[in-house]
Amino acid sequence: MKNIEDYVYLEPKLYADVIKNREPLFSNRFNSANVSGIDSIVLYATGSSANAAFAAAPFMSHVLHMPVQVEEPSFAANYGLFTNRHTLYIAISQGGHSYSTIHVVEELQKKGHLVYVLTSDPTSPISNIGQNILDMGMPIEEMPYVSAGYSVTILDLMLISLELQSTKETIFDIDKYVNRINHVIEEMPAAIKRASNWVNQQIPRLNEASRVIFIGYGAGYGVAREGETKITETVRITAQGKELEEYMHGPYLGLHQDDDIFFIEPQGRLQKRAVLLKNFLSEHVKSIQTIYSSFSPEASVNDLMLELDTDELLTSLFLTTPIHLLAYRWSQLKGHDLTVSAYPDFDKITGSKI
């Protein structure tokens, strides 16, 4: 069975495969007949799929010039399914077994709404009930704690937004963005190597950590959320993933001096705000690191510069690489067997998966 690290190193190839097959995957799935008049998009997802949705949403909104929201399917289906005929709904479930995502798809289809399902398993329960299935373009991930699937979901959503833009009667340079994505793919192996070296330096110091906090903005917000998810799942210590301004409005009051704080820095429009927060935190916390998407003259010895220069909205395609490597190697240092569920009776008792 492949592990999380194996999948990290596979990501450039998986990305390249999706780009190569983007026309059969997504072309002609959207046309002026079925997306005419759409003025907003809602993405339904949980867990890492939701993190990926948040990571892709800024790019999607920018390309489509419309609001792109991420919603919890359980909350929406039970308490807030106030649907709009001018909204395009996309439900994401990589494995296709999430009860809440399946439920919200069923409810939307009952009401006659257009909903697309993005999944990697065409034989899964969600594929069996979904009327419009979008293949992620990658094999089913063997490792239960997904990493490559999270990343490919981000790319899929970006390409879907470009495909939707192509149905509009406007002049738009899709090739410009595809070329930028290809540049990211070409530079990723070098970025992964830098991430790997940095993780090796961090692991000995981090092994005694009791709480980790990831802070991000823009495309980095979904990355921060994924940091919370993966460290919690694999290392099994307390982890948090916060949006920059969200953290400034309350959570900072719960600071501990021995917190390990990681800033996810896409080097975009809120970078100066992040610097202000780091200046404050440096007076109260011993350990602060920044994961920069590109080179930064402000980087300290414990920071990571992935040195991949691109549009800030595309940085989520690779900014999670060091976090996934960190989660895996740290979990192995803790002696956790990630091929075995820590609570094998959970899904059976709760019915969270079908």
Rank of each mutant, 00 (worst) to 15 (best):
E228F: 05
E226K: 07
K230P: 06
E187P: 12
V212H: 00
E226F: 10
Y252N: 09
D175F: 13
R211N: 03
L244V: 01
L206A: 09
L206H: 02
A191Y: 00
K168F: 12
K176C: 11
E246D: 08
I192A: 04
K242W: 14
Y221F: 15
N207T: 14
G227K: 07
K242H: 14
E228V: 06
F172L: 04
E243G: 14
M248W: 06
A190R: 14
H249W: 08
H256C: 10
M188N: 09
E169I: 08
G241K: 04
H183G: 12
I213T: 00
D173R: 08
G241A: 00
T170K: 15
T232Q: 12
I203E: 08
E243Y: 05
V178S: 11
E243D: 06
V235R: 08
S210D: 11
F172H: 08
F214Y: 13
T229E: 10
I237E: 03
H249F: 10
V212N: 00
F172R: 02
R205E: 12
D175E: 15
R180L: 15
D173E: 14
Q202A: 06
D175C: 13
P251A: 03
D259C: 05
L255F: 07
G254C: 05
T229C: 08
M248Q: 12
D259V: 02
W198M: 08
W198S: 12
T238W: 02
A191K: 01
S210L: 11
L253Y: 12
R236I: 10
K230H: 07
A219Y: 01
I181V: 10
E246Y: 05
R211S: 03
G218L: 01
G216D: 02
G222D: 00
E245I: 05
I185M: 07
N197I: 15
S210V: 13
I174Q: 13
Y177A: 04
V212K: 00
A190W: 11
T234M: 14
P189Q: 06
M248D: 04
T229P: 07
E246G: 09
A239N: 01
E245K: 00
M188Y: 04
T234R: 04
D259W: 02
F172V: 03
N200Q: 14
E187R: 15
D259K: 00
Y217S: 07
Y221P: 07
D258K: 09
D258E: 14
K242E: 12
E228T: 05
K176G: 08
G250H: 04
I215R: 04
Q257G: 09
I185R: 10
R205K: 14
Y217V: 02
T229G: 08
R194F: 10
S210T: 14
N182Q: 15
V199P: 06
T229L: 13
Q202R: 07
G216W: 01
K168C: 07
